[in-house]
């Protein structure tokens, strides 16, 4: 099937004034927050992007929607339905075919009743009917239409946000950390709605820091580390550590509380840091000379997935 979204070699840079002991405050510098990211989503598929906070994954959502902050710019290509997605086009499609389900519930207008927000100003009976059925689908009664956002609980507000996507026919949904602060059970209930939407033919990009949550719903998982995608794997691959390709992904597996809770030493570097070669070199037990001297390690196909590692079999 034709992919609905193709991201090719996307990099996002920030331009900032320096501060700190190393240089003058009048110099600008560029930080690469996302480096060389490629991703494809076909209709009916849920692709999860998993990374620690500060690894630059939210910028991915912002660059697709064309809402990057003023001091950043992107390189690379984003195609929607086979055509290049410009900022202008993204703005036109937003709320019609492409939907963002944001992290905060502050995206709801606090001064507008829920029903009015879902109808987006239209008053014809057809819109009303669709709005009603969208809410019903997520277990929200007609009375919710008459509530203001502050009267909703966190879980309800989140369901309203999802409902706002299905009043139209969504083709691409971008969920940026859609269940923060929800306990596992409520989070899974919300996520099951994503599965339904995918089964109806939408492509879903699910951005999260929670690997376990991602695995419970996604078909494919891209693992983010310090601004780079270091591995792309099928969700099933996480069943056994031997199926995983990158040493970091394997370390993640072993660090899950139910798989031994084992920690490896070292730290994930800050995405903007200057470095050569593999970002994981500092934590990797199988790190070799060439891991540190090369430029950026290329993402290569390997055993049915993709990996950004020079010696993927070293640790098995």
């Amino acid at each position: 099937m034709e992919p609905i979204l193709q991201i090719e070699h996307l990099s996002v840079y920030f331009t900032q004034y320096e501060h700190g002991p190393r240089s003058s405050a009048f110099q600008k510098r560029q930080l690469a927050a996302v480096k060389d990211l490629s991703l494809e989503i076909t209709p009916g598929q849920i692709v999860a992007v998993v990374g620690a906070s500060g690894s630059g994954k939210s910028l991915l959502a912002h660059s697709i929607l064309g809402i990057l902050p003023y001091n950043s710019h992107m390189e690379g290509k984003i195609r929607y339905n086979g055509e290049t997605l410009t900022e202008k086009k993204a703005r036109k499609l937003r709320g019609k075919e492409i939907f963002l389900i944001p992290q905060g519930v502050t995206y709801l207008d606090p001064l507008m009743k829920v029903g009015a927000q879902l109808r987006k100003g239209k008053k014809d009976p057809e819109t009303k009917r669709r709005c009603r059925s969208a809410l019903e689908r997520y277990g929200l009664g007609a009375d919710v239409e008459e509530l203001y956002p502050f009267e909703l609980s966190g879980g309800m507000a989140r369901r309203v946000l999802i409902a706002s996507a299905v009043t139209e026919k969504p083709r691409l949904i971008i969920a940026d950390e859609p269940t923060p602060g929800l306990d596992a059970r409520s989070a899974k209930r919300i996520l099951s709605h994503f599965r339904e939407l995918a089964d109806e033919g939408a492509g879903i990009l699910f951005i999260t820091h929670d690997l376990e949550l991602a695995l419970s719903i996604a078909d494919e998982v891209a693992v983010f580390y310090a601004g780079e995608t270091i591995e792309k794997a099928k969700a099933e691959d996480f069943g056994k550590p031997e199926n995983l390709r990158h040493p970091y992904t394997r370390a993640l597996w072993y660090a899950m509380p139910e798989h031994g809770f084992r920690a490896v030493g070292g730290l994930q570097p800050y995405a903007g840091d200057d470095r050569k070669g593999c970002p994981y070199a500092g934590q990797c037990t199988a790190c070799r000379e060439d891991c540190r001297t090369e430029g950026q390690i290329p993402l290569v196909e390997y055993r049915g997935g993709e990996v950004r590692c020079l010696h993927p079999d070293e640790m098995r």
Binding site: T15, E18, R29, Q30, D273
Partner: peptide
């Protein structure tokens, strides 16, 4: 991290 040229305004 790339420094921009010193002379740029």
């Amino acid at each position: 991290m790339k420094n921009m040229t010193q002379t740029e305004t």
